[in-house]
């Protein structure tokens, strides 16, 4: 990994960030075309740099590029699309392509759990709410992004930092190990050694090594569930203590006798 690769990556991230900034919904005339061009260029550049420099060539790297491109495309559409229903659906696309990436890493259990939990339950609930709440015309908060510049800046600086750190030549011994592991993770080498089915391994790790974390997560979920129940049980005061305002027996409009 040469420093020039790192700078190339930073440049690509800056390009991507600029493209996304142009794509974010803002009032005024549309700047979609340059945004799309910049983003596509950045994405293609990123993937080719990764493919050439970082990922060791193997029979699955094409799939990796494909699904990660879909995931990044979907993620950018989640925040740039003006209709919330479409945003939620692009979120589903992201989840599915990330699940596919997990399958490539032989983490089938995680992949399916991701689909069941996110795509099958959580995003459906989002859609449910959006469908119930959405007005027929586009609302203001859907057509303009809040703080688009800073959001894009922070997001892409973080991404650049992480990626740059991951691909930069290791200096300390600890970082060397991390980098070495990362290099091994490049899809071909380490995975071949994994057993065919690893659900039992996941379960064993969860219930032995990470038992405390698991319990804490469970307690957190319980707390949030209790909170949700408490919130939804809040009584909304109705005039006359829940009784119908008109006397029982007068239903609907009052009609004169004919």
């Amino acid at each position: 990994m040469t420093p020039s690769t790192g700078y190339l990556l930073y440049l690509l991230f800056a390009m991507g960030g600029a493209g996304l900034y142009l794509l974010l919904p803002q009032p005024g005339k549309s700047r979609a075309l340059p945004g799309v061009a910049l983003s596509v260029l950045a994405l293609a550049g990123l993937l080719s740099v990764l493919a050439v420099k970082v990922i060791a060539p193997s029979d699955t790297s094409a799939y990796f590029c494909l699904f990660s491109a879909i995931a990044i495309f979907g993620a950018s559409r989640v925040i740039t699309h003006r209709k919330p229903v479409y945003s939620a659906l692009y979120f589903v696309l992201v989840v599915i392509s990330v699940a596919a990436l997990l399958v490539l890493q032989r983490a089938e259990f995680l992949a399916v759990a991701l689909i069941i939990v996110y795509a099958g339950a959580i995003i459906v609930t989002y859609l449910f709410v959006i469908m119930l709440a959405q007005q027929s015309h586009e609302t203001v908060y859907d057509t303009r992004a809040r703080e688009p510049f800073f959001a894009v800046l922070v997001g892409f600086v973080l991404m650049a930092a992480i990626t740059g750190k991951a691909v930069e030549p290791a200096t300390t011994s600890e970082a060397k190990i991390v980098t070495a592991q990362f290099a091994q993770q490049n899809l071909a080498g380490a995975i071949e050694g994994l057993p065919e089915g690893n659900t039992a391994d996941v379960a064993a790790a969860l219930l032995t090594k990470y038992i405390v974390v698991l319990e804490i997560a469970g307690v957190l979920l319980l707390v949030s569930m209790v909170g949700a129940v408490a919130l939804s049980r809040k009584k909304i005061p109705v005039e006359g203590h829940g009784l119908p305002t008109r006397p029982l027996g007068q239903i609907g409009k009052e009609v004169e006798p004919f």
Binding site: P247, L248, G249, Q250, I251, E254, V255, E256, P257
Partner: peptide, 8 residues
């Protein structure tokens, strides 16, 4: 008009 006593 519907009276109370008409309602079952």
């Amino acid at each position: 008009m519907i009276r109370d006593e008409d309602i079952l």
